[in-house]
Nucleic acid binder design. Structure first.
Lengths: 189, 189
DNA sequence: ATAAAACATAGACTTTTGTCATCATTCAAC
DNA sequence: GTTGAATGATGACAAAAGTCTATGTTTTAT
């Protein structure tokens, strides 16, 4: 399982990393069922997760307990409530498994150690943060002005796997449209 | 003008900063008319701006040249196309003055120097990035599921000054709703 | 294997949002 | 200050999105 992460890191930072194994030992394996919370609003997010296998939903509740999904994340990527993880303040979002998942988790202490051990890792937090920020900006700029139909077309173009992998309900909450509307419009494509 | 920035910095990083004046000298004063572009999509964003006075619009164009505004920023805050500034890659957003504005601009070189000169400034870029990210996350979570009316109520609660300060057209593009709809709904409140 | 729960689709209907045309008003450039 | 352009409000209508109900299907837990 750690091998997947090794490949991910080597693919990004190159093959000439000293102490990579030391770093990889900072991660602990998490095997977890579907529909389990990894982070809950109001609690501090203690880990950054690397998804080896599975799928996570990052979302908030509105006052009627409807879910709005900010992101759906699958294997091969990082996931965390970064602001909470970095600051130690309570999280403002929830993270839950959508499927049975296999994760690698690193806590703050391990993260620190990682940055001290492998110099190149100094940039990892910054990189994750920058990527997350860029994604958010993109999502705002893309979605705010799009119609429901165009949002669905966007999904099919840029995240086609999600269409078949996760429930319509989840996708609808990600796209910010009603699930019935999603079902109707999808049929017309 | 520099005094405003000095107060902003002292208010955040404390009063015991060595070499603060050296740092402040890295900024250059920019006085600029309304409707002038500071950053254009496709060009590299070379500066981070501190807004001493005035108002900036951060936005993108869709394929019909309609504007979608991601942020409206006023005096006392930082503004830049951070991803481009940090990476040197072309900007994906435009930044334009909404009013005649007075800005303090620092380029990458100055930014580097700033970080070397005043140790605490090492965290400034990270702080700006984290704040920007948090704002984006908040905006996604807040807006995606809100109706046009609720978006207007949100604006009146959290950014009331904008309502009287900038044009309805601009606000509507920020809220992601049609300007006529904005006008109608506003009248009903 | 089975029962219960969750999910997906569809139709009828309501509400919200968008579009367009018009007119009065405000604002900015000269 | 005057004038032309941009802005803002409003009514009539069209289109899009949301709600609710019903029904059949798929999943999940046991």
């Amino acid at each position: 399982m750690i091998e997947i992460l090794r490949q991910h890191i080597v693919g990004r930072l190159g093959n000439d990393l000293d102490n990579l194994d030391t770093v990889l030992n900072c991660f602990k394996t998490v095997t977890i069922d579907r529909n389990q919370f990894l982070v809950q609003e109001g609690e501090v997010c203690k880990y950054v997760y690397f998804i080896v296998k599975g799928c996570l939903q990052v979302f908030v509740y509105d006052d009627e307990m409807n879910e709005t999904t900010r992101d759906i994340v699958i294997e091969g990527t990082w996931c965390s409530e970064l602001i909470s993880f970095g600051s130690g303040k309570p999280a403002t979002e929830n993270i839950r498994t959508v499927e049975h998942s296999e994760l690698l988790a690193i806590d703050r202490q391990g993260f620190q150690k990682m940055m001290e051990t492998v110099p190149q890792f100094n940039k990892v937090y910054k990189q994750i943060l920058e990527t997350s920020y860029a994604n958010s900006v993109y999502r705002i700029n893309t979605f705010v002005a799009l119609s429901a139909l165009d949002r669905i077309k966007w999904l099919m173009e840029f995240r086609p796997k999600l269409m078949t992998r996760v429930s319509s309900k989840l996708i609808a909450s990600y796209l910010g449209i009603n699930k019935d509307v999603f079902s109707r419009l999808k049929a017309k494509l």
